[in-house]
Computed example of a mutant assay.
Amino acid sequence: MDTRRIVITGGPGSGKTALVSYLEKEGYPVMHEISRDVILEAQKQGIEQLFLENPILFSEKLLEGRLKQFHEGEKCAAPILFYDRGMPDVTAYMDFVSAHYPENFCETCEKFRYHEIFVLPPWEEIYEQDNERYESFEQAEKIFHFLKSSYENYGYKIHEVPVGTIKERVQFILKKLGY
């Protein structure tokens, strides 16, 4: 039996990372978001906002890291594995900033497939900007729509997770997955 690969995605400040952390505390295996690591590494090299300054380089690093996570997921023996963002997030963000990107970005997203996609909508009450999250809430709303479109363009059916407590959101996801 293959492990089901489940993506949890959403715009900045949607509660995604808190939800994934909760799943992990409940004993589910997760692959954590890597964009903050890429951002912090660039800042150590003197590049304050790598995505804004060089979106292609930033996106290449993300896609490479997420592909690595995908391959690491092949070692997972659990019935489900959660990913904090998936590879189509990369093209969604590139589309959001109207940047052209290499064809291999799309080829990678088409070749390496996830089983289920859950997207969290923007949630203004919990939204906060910080050193790595520079988008406004209005931009977060637009990113949400680009994320949905990106996954749909790759042929995925999207499950939109309702706003609520972390526990309610996790229950929604697990019920959709048959747990």
Rank of each mutant, 00 (worst) to 15 (best):
2 D>I: 08
2 D>H: 12
2 D>R: 07
4 R>K: 15
4 R>L: 13
9 T>N: 15
14 S>E: 07
14 S>L: 07
15 G>Q: 08
19 L>A: 02
20 V>Y: 14
21 S>H: 12
22 Y>N: 03
23 L>K: 07
23 L>G: 07
26 E>R: 13
29 P>K: 13
29 P>V: 06
33 E>Q: 14
33 E>D: 12
41 E>W: 10
41 E>F: 12
43 Q>R: 12
43 Q>H: 04
44 K>V: 05
46 G>M: 11
47 I>S: 03
47 I>Q: 04
47 I>R: 11
50 L>H: 08
54 N>I: 06
61 K>W: 09
65 G>D: 04
66 R>P: 05
68 K>R: 07
69 Q>C: 02
69 Q>L: 01
70 F>Q: 05
72 E>S: 10
76 C>R: 07
77 A>D: 05
78 A>D: 11
86 G>Q: 00
87 M>K: 06
88 P>L: 06
91 T>F: 04
92 A>M: 04
92 A>K: 01
93 Y>H: 09
101 Y>S: 01
104 N>P: 07
104 N>Y: 15
104 N>M: 12
106 C>M: 05
111 K>H: 05
112 F>I: 05
113 R>E: 02
115 H>K: 03
116 E>L: 01
118 F>H: 00
118 F>M: 00
122 P>G: 02
123 W>S: 04
126 I>D: 02
129 Q>T: 08
129 Q>F: 06
131 N>R: 07
132 E>M: 05
134 Y>N: 03
143 I>N: 08
143 I>R: 05
145 H>V: 05
148 K>Q: 13
148 K>G: 00
149 S>Q: 14
150 S>W: 08
152 E>R: 08
155 G>P: 08
158 I>F: 01
158 I>C: 01
161 V>K: 02
162 P>T: 12
163 V>E: 07
165 T>C: 12
165 T>L: 07
167 K>D: 07
171 Q>H: 13
172 F>T: 01
174 L>M: 13
174 L>Y: 10
178 G>D: 09
